[in-house]
Design a protein around this nucleic acid. Structure first.
Lengths: 260, 260
DNA sequence: CAAATGTTTTGATCCGTATCAAGGACAGGC
DNA sequence: GCCTGTCCTTGATACGGATCAAAACATTTG
């Protein structure tokens, strides 16, 4: 059974609500049917501070903090120390690995609710760049690690996220290793649609906050090939290219190409 | 602080010792400096049964079991129910994903000590085939899941394994997306050497229990290309092709090609 | 031990995507 | 408003690895 305090804690960690040292939780996003408020928020209802045990209150205040970055900034770089783990609450990021000769592989795109630093490594395994203005909820890695030991259910939830990441990575290996350029684009678009479905519901409009170059580096293609394939799918009326994304016209056909 | 009972438990879960309903642990592999024995083993020393709390003894006996499979058998198939998670104690396996049209992507090779089913999904995400005769230590997924909840340190260890897998998968994404055929082969050989180093120490002799086709399906290449690149590396005196593997002559050169 | 089957190697040719080149669209700065 | 830089698109050409073909070699089966 989950206490209200625990729920707030989990929602904070997973970016469903925002945390900062000053405004512990902006409760209006907390959960349907729940109305919480913070000392410094205007929302009416039950105070979070009432719902939290003193030690949990301290914990949240101590380890979590909301930080914003403008678009195109680098949040952290491959190889550097990783004092924080964090959770994206708004915006989109690109995670990439660079080879010494400049070739680049994008290992993933991060959307709201995704965790950064799941591997809990002391040093970053990739570079993270903001594609749009972003807000993250940041935790000291050690503090978060200690928290995991105190809250086994939280550890379980984090482990499940790591598992899901692993499964995604293995699916991407199939895409990279065994699919044609057109199939790669189709599976990318379907994949983005599915991920956005968790955020703004199922929709044929798929935002693409990244450039064609980023998509190419994610799929093991060049910019030109990405552009050609998108144009081809548009010519064949499977998609429409719109500013900042695509609209999916023939989802069935894309799914067939992607062969999920 | 780790109790002896906990150590035995961990060693069992991670395949450093073998478990079965009848012979709880074959203690001779347990740990350097530790001598344990089981009721049904001949090894002398402290009895494991003395070291375990009654409930832990029960747990081990109930959930763990050693199972053997001959070479070339399929342990489980993509899409099927996954009643067990397990740990490879000896032999080697191939994990692969199949596309509907027959194209195949090998997502990994499993060596002794590796875990199968880290994602704890109710259904298998890939097919697992034995490349050699294998022994696995098998646990009921639910039993294991309950065990994780009772032993946070075990959950932590499992989470770390999942993280390591994730990191490996992301590295493999770079290989698949951005490397040439020759670089792929070099990084594969270096990677296999590093993994075997944990098992039989650093050595220039790298066993390759898989076929060229398997290697190709792992690296996103065809058999012919794998063969040509191996021949090329051999002609250039970077490796020697021996039965069942390769001997690395010029590790430096391979590492440069692999650009770790 | 021979036949059948599977694996590895090598050669010739082809094709999909990379590379090179250039023009157009758009945003931000002065 | 124009300049500059970035991104996107399109075309021409090149090349790395796929495909097709076949022989050498190894392993299993009867």
């Amino acid at each position: 059974m989950e206490s209200l305090a625990e729920k707030v804690l989990f929602d904070t960690v997973f970016g469903r609500i925002e945390t900062s040292p000053r405004t512990i939780a902006c409760a209006h996003k907390a959960a349907p049917g729940l109305a919480l408020e913070c000392h410094e928020c205007e929302i009416k209802g039950l105070s979070i501070c009432d719902a939290l045990e003193p030690d949990e209150f301290d914990l949240l205040e101590r380890i979590g903090r909301t930080v914003s970055f403008p678009a195109k900034t680098t949040l952290f770089e491959q190889g550097r120390d990783a004092p924080f783990v964090s959770n994206l609450t708004s915006g989109a990021m690109r995670l990439s690995k660079l080879l010494p000769d400049g070739r680049r592989q994008v290992v993933g795109f991060t959307l709201p609710g995704d965790f950064l630093g799941l591997a809990m490594q002391p040093t970053h395994m990739y570079t993270a760049d903001a594609l749009t203005p972003v807000k993250i909820c940041q935790f000291s890695r050690h503090g978060f690690s200690d928290l995991l030991d105190k809250k086994p259910r939280l550890m379980r939830a984090v482990m499940n996220m790591a598992s899901r990441e692993l499964t995604l990575a293995q699916d991407q290996m199939v895409v990279l290793g065994r699919r044609t350029a057109e199939e790669k684009i189709a599976s990318f678009l379907i994949g983005m649609r599915n991920r956005y479905a968790r955020i703004h519901g199922a929709s044929v409009h798929v935002p693409l906050p990244m450039t064609r170059l980023d998509i190419g580096d994610f799929l093991g293609l060049t910019v030109e090939t990405v552009s050609r394939m998108m144009t081809r799918l548009a010519r064949e009326k499977a998609i429409v290219i719109v500013p900042d994304g695509v609209r999916l016209l023939d989802v069935r056909r894309l799914e067939l190409l992607a062969e999920m």
